[in-house]
């Protein structure tokens, strides 16, 4: 039926067991590389590396909605923001909360939980927001989701700016414990890839692809369109919330404007450059397009006119890249195909 259906043939148990084993070997290889990076790179490069991990989480999970289910969410910034605020409020030390957040509800003021549960709570809150937005919107055809999720971004920013007692408004939250590092971000990235891969190759994933290819036919075959689209959307929101939590604990200070539309747009570009509907493509897109702006920022400074760097240039180049990919190579670099890792059995 479609390009994405290639390569999802039946697997025998031995193949699955072998894939698991080879997968573990790859994770071990990644761990070795990360350990190597940890012991050789300076903090600046380690931070870029951690951001690469976060962007992989965001791009791969966005692929579920925008690539496989054929919807178009622009909610990354909103979900990240929800995840970041939730996790930061949970993980801040109690002493700091009593000092900086006098208006916080007493139970929250008296709690401080470890990083992992705080991150998961961030993801869960983002997922709840996704249900609220998704239920009215995903019943409809057309790309209302794009506008509704942008609307959610505005709502989140407005609430973060006005809910002084909890968010401290425009002052934001600072002094967030710097718990995030390459191990956390890449750990979550591996988990995201695994979960998305499993979902895509499950009956739910087939249903998503079927809806993308032909909504009416999928519905006629008994696919619950609303439930399937909602699952994709909520799951990707969960991971975006997690990514926001990781990001907050990396940069240690967040304000309502930390999560702007630029982040959403850049993740979308990573996705389309890698190719919507390709998980490996998303990973490569995320890596390339995290490094590109870092390089371009140097160019902006080098091309300074009369002392002011040429701000805007790197964003123009990224946008131009997106437009050119859309016009000349719509399917992205990998066109919905996966790169087969050596040793893995095709599924």
């Amino acid at each position: 039926m479609s390009r994405a259906m290639d390569g999802v043939r039946r697997v025998d148990i031995n193949g699955a067991a072998r894939n698991l084993l080879v997968g573990c070997a790859y994770v071990a290889l990644l761990a070795t590389l990360l350990w190597l990076a940890q012991s050789t790179l300076n903090n600046y490069y380690l931070r870029i590396l951690a951001v690469i991990g976060i962007n992989i989480i965001l791009t791969v999970s966005l692929n579920l909605t925008n690539g496989f289910a054929g919807d178009f969410s622009l909610g990354i910034a909103a979900f990240m923001s929800i995840g970041a605020y939730t996790a930061a409020l949970l993980s801040l030390p109690v002493a700091m909360k009593t000092a900086s957040f006098p208006g916080l509800p007493a139970w929250l003021q008296a709690t401080s939980i470890p990083f992992l549960p705080a991150t998961i709570a961030g993801g869960v809150m983002a997922a709840i927001a996704a249900v609220i937005v998704g239920l009215p919107v995903l019943r409809l055809r057309g790309h209302y989701l794009a506008v509704a999720t942008l609307g959610l971004m505005v709502i989140v920013r407005v609430v973060a700016n006005n809910w002084q007692d909890v968010t401290r408004g425009a002052r934001g939250i600072n002094g967030i414990p710097p718990l995030s590092n390459i191990w956390w971000t890449f750990g979550w990235a591996v988990l995201t890839i695994y979960v998305v891969w499993m979902v895509v190759h499950s009956p739910y994933g087939r249903a998503m692809i079927a809806i993308r290819e032909d909504w009416l036919a999928a519905q006629a075959r008994g696919v619950n369109v609303l439930r399937t689209r909602l699952l994709a959307f909520v799951l990707s929101a969960f991971f975006a919330g997690v990514a926001g939590a990781l990001y907050a604990h990396l940069i240690t200070a967040i304000t309502p404007s930390s999560f702007s539309f630029v982040i959403t747009f850049n993740i979308v570009v990573m996705l389309v450059v890698g190719g919507m509907g390709s998980i490996t493509g998303s990973v490569i897109g995320a890596v390339l397009l995290t490094l590109l702006p870092e390089g371009l920022r140097q160019v902006e400074t080098a091309l300074a006119v009369g002392g002011t760097p040429l701000y805007g240039l790197s964003q123009i180049i990224i946008a131009l890249l997106a437009a050119l990919v859309m016009i000349f190579r719509r399917q992205g670099l990998f066109g919905g195909r996966e790169i087969r890792l050596p040793g893995m059995v095709e599924r």
């Binding site: 925008n66 054929g70 178009f72 622009l74 057309g142 790309h143 794009a146 747009f265 979308v268 570009v269 389309v272 040429l310 701000y311 805007g312 240039l313 964003q315 123009i316 990224i318 946008a319 131009l320 997106a322 437009a323 859309m326 016009i327 719509r330």
Partner: peptide
């Protein structure tokens, strides 16, 4: 004639290009 979503992404890109050209 391309899928709707490609035009949507392109319009986001156009928006970003116009805005940042002004910033520049």
């Amino acid at each position: 004639g391309a899928p709707e979503v490609t035009m949507l992404i392109t319009s986001l890109a156009v928006s970003s290009i116009i805005e940042n050209s002004m910033v520049m």
